[in-house]
Design a binder for these strands. Structure first.
Lengths: 198, 198
DNA sequence: CGATATAAACTACACCGTGCAGTTTACATA
DNA sequence: TATGTAAACTGCACGGTGTAGTTTATATCG
């Protein structure tokens, strides 16, 4: 790898690490250069300002997370099994270190600078991308009965987010895999009790 | 009121206002004194450091919010009506400017200094205080059928939080009263579909 | 008169971003 | 393989700015 690319990586890695552990505000460029084992001048040769570096970090982290399969509705498979598959993917994402990092950094910035809020809502990660289509197909097939599909989709995702994501984000607690399985089961039970076609 | 108490109030009011609108970090003590219409030295006569002032603010805001009625289960009243009453109180709290202020300030600090996380989870506000008792009574009366009561209570509260609180916190959107009513109705429908005794 | 408030200047420090002289690296050409 | 060159990196000092907290001299209130 070219040297300059190597240095750039070191800078981004250090920034990701420090922005996460100390917050963007509390990370000085001197500290960052030290951690990256790069001179401060080199940091500024790659990124004009601290903010540019922050933008680049967010972009890189989003790209890392953007991968991930899409689940499409399958008439032949039991609905609870399909929902479980979706939920498991989502919980894996929501509790992954990578996702928690970018979320923490992004949310801290958004709360300090509300004008960036749109950035967050626009970015569509995980099952949010395809859940509406999935539910629509399931309704068409007569498996589910939902009047407000986007709302129901949110209800499902929010269950997982509330139990898995926010507690981790705020440093309150981590779930064991057994607890995660319980959360998924109950989210599905709740959802199907309301929306499964009879 | 004694003058010194009056000044103290002015300082706390200004701090609450500025800490919320600009964040703790971005609020300077000069700015704060200006807004409080008080000299900077007076600020320091009341609060030794910026951090002490911050602690006092948090304490005062929590005390303001700690009030709030408790709903107890009533066999004679329909369960959906009682849940609606609880949910309405909760949504009113979660969307109140006062609650959003303290939450924003507190969460930002918690995310920057994870060692303070316990502070948040300990403080019990709103229906979180009494919902377990309520659900236990409703189960005993045979109105609801729940195996894991604390978990079910969270499921209910998290519905409201996810739709009302977090979007406001992150500056994404505010709900109209009509939307809030819809959220409450659907949260109850979801909950009862799963847990109402048949 | 004594306690308290005020305004303004001051100290001490941390941080962003720049300039520059000198060194290292990558690489092409002889 | 040796050498030249351009691009990139380094280290350090520095200007400018913002801010926590202090000091000092003065005014005001009870």
């Amino acid at each position: 790898m070219k040297l300059t690319e190597q240095k750039r990586m070191q800078i981004l890695d250090a920034a990701e690490e420090l922005f996460h552990s100390s917050g963007v505000e509390h990370t000085s460029m001197d500290q960052l250069a030290l951690q990256a084992k790069v001179s401060k001048r080199t940091v500024y040769n790659h990124f004009a300002t601290k903010d540019a570096l922050f933008q680049a970090i967010l972009q890189r982290m989003f790209n890392k997370l953007a991968q991930g399969g899409e689940v499409r509705f399958n008439v032949a498979e039991p609905i609870d099994q399909q929902l479980r598959s979706i939920a498991q993917d989502e919980v894996t994402l929501l509790s992954s270190a990578a996702f928690l990092r970018v979320a923490k950094i992004a949310i801290m910035q958004v709360m300090q600078r509300p004008e960036l809020a749109q950035l967050m809502s626009d970015s569509s990660l995980g099952c949010k991308r395809y859940i509406d289509n999935f539910l629509t197909d399931a309704c068409s097939a007569g498996v589910l009965q939902i009047t407000d599909i986007p709302f129901a989709g949110k209800q499902f995702i929010y269950q997982l987010k509330s139990f898995v994501f926010y507690p981790s984000l705020f440093g309150l607690e981590q779930q064991t895999p057994a607890q995660q399985a319980h959360i998924i089961n109950e989210a599905i039970a709740l959802f199907l009790a309301r929306y499964q076609a009879k």
